[in-house]
C-alpha cells in the first residue's frame, strides 16, 4: 500500500531496486537464491512421489515391469527430445538477452513455448490412447487384464506426469508472457527471464528422471 507520504511506488527495473534492497545486484542475488530455494522444495515434492513409487518398484518388480510395458515408449522418448530442445532454446534466450539482442530473445522464447505446447499435445494424445486401452485408474481400469499393482503403477504414472504437465503449463504461460512483453518493447528486468529459465530447466530435469522410471522398465523380454 503506497501513499504519497511513503514516496513514489518503487518500480522493479534495472535502474532502481525495490525499496527493501540497497542495490540492483543485491536484488538479483536475492531473486536467484529465492528461485533455487523454491526449486529445492520442488525436488522434494516430486521426490516424495518417486520415493513411494520406488518402494513399490522394489516390492513388486515383475508386476510394475509388466504394467510399465503398456506405456508408449516411442512417444515418451520423442517427448523427452522435445523438452530437451525447448530447454536449449530457453538457455539460448538467456544468452541472447545477455548480448542485448532483443529479436532473437523473442524468437527463442516463442520456440520454447511452442515446443512446450507440443509436449503437452503429445502427452494428451498418450492419455487418449491409454483411456482407449482401459488404463486409467478408477475411471476405466481393466483389472482383469492388468492386475492390482498395474493400477497402482498407472496411478503413479498419471500423478507424476499430471503434476509435471501442470508445472509445464505454468511455465508456458510465463514464457509466452515474457515473449509478448519483450516483443512489445517492455522487457521485464533481466532476473525475471533468468528465473523463468531456471524454472523451465527444472521442469525438464523432473522429466529426465520420470522418463526412465516410468517408460523404460520391463522393455526386456
Amino acid at each position: 500500500m503506497w501513499t504519497a507520504s511513503l514516496g513514489p511506488k518503487p518500480r522493479m527495473s534495472e535502474a532502481t531496486p525495490a525499496f527493501q534492497f540497497a542495490s540492483v545486484p543485491q536484488q538479483r542475488e536475492a531473486a536467484t537464491l529465492g528461485m533455487w530455494t523454491f526449486l529445492a522444495t520442488e525436488v522434494l515434492f516430486f521426490g516424495a512421489l518417486i520415493a513411494a513409487y520406488s518402494a513399490y518398484r522394489i516390492a513388486w518388480p515383475d508386476e510394475i515391469a509388466a504394467a510399465a510395458r503398456h506405456t508408449k515408449v516411442a512417444l515418451g522418448a520423442i517427448n523427452t527430445a522435445v523438452l530437451l530442445t525447448s530447454s536449449a532454446f530457453m538457455a539460448s534466450a538467456v544468452a541472447f538477452d545477455e548480448a542485448k539482442r532483443r529479436r532473437p530473445v523473442v524468437l527463442c522464447l516463442l520456440a520454447t513455448a511452442v515446443l512446450g505446447l507440443l509436449f503437452i499435445g503429445i502427452k494428451g494424445y498418450e492419455y487418449c490412447l491409454e483411456y482407449q486401452e482401459g488404463l486409467v485408474p478408477a475411471l476405466n481400469f481393466q483389472l482383469g487384464r492388468y492386475g492390482g499393482i498395474g493400477e497402482l503403477f498407472f496411478l503413479f504414472y498419471f500423478f507424476a506426469t499430471g503434476f509435471h504437465a501442470v508445472h509445464l503449463t505454468i511455465g508456458i504461460a510465463m514464457v509466452v508472457m515474457l515473449a509478448v512483453r519483450t516483443g512489445a518493447g517492455h522487457p521485464p528486468h533481466a532476473p525475471v527471464l533468468r528465473m523463468v529459465g531456471l524454472y523451465w530447466h527444472f521442469v525438464d530435469i523432473v522429466w529426465i528422471f520420470l522418463f526412465p522410471l516410468i517408460y523404460l522398465p520391463g522393455r526386456v523380454g
Binding site: 536467484t32 537464491l33 533455487w36 530455494t37 526449486l39 529445492a40 522444495t41 520442488e42 525436488v43 522434494l44 521426490g47 516424495a48 518417486i50 520415493a51 520406488s54 518402494a55 522394489i58
Partner: peptide, 20 residues
C-alpha cells in the same frame, strides 16, 4: 547457490535412504 541446488537432492537422498 550451489549449496542450495544440492540441498534438495541431499534431503531427497535422506528420504530415500532411511526409508530404504
Amino acid at each position: 547457490v550451489r549449496v542450495f541446488a544440492g540441498a534438495g537432492f541431499l534431503w531427497l537422498l535422506i528420504l530415500l535412504g532411511l526409508t530404504g
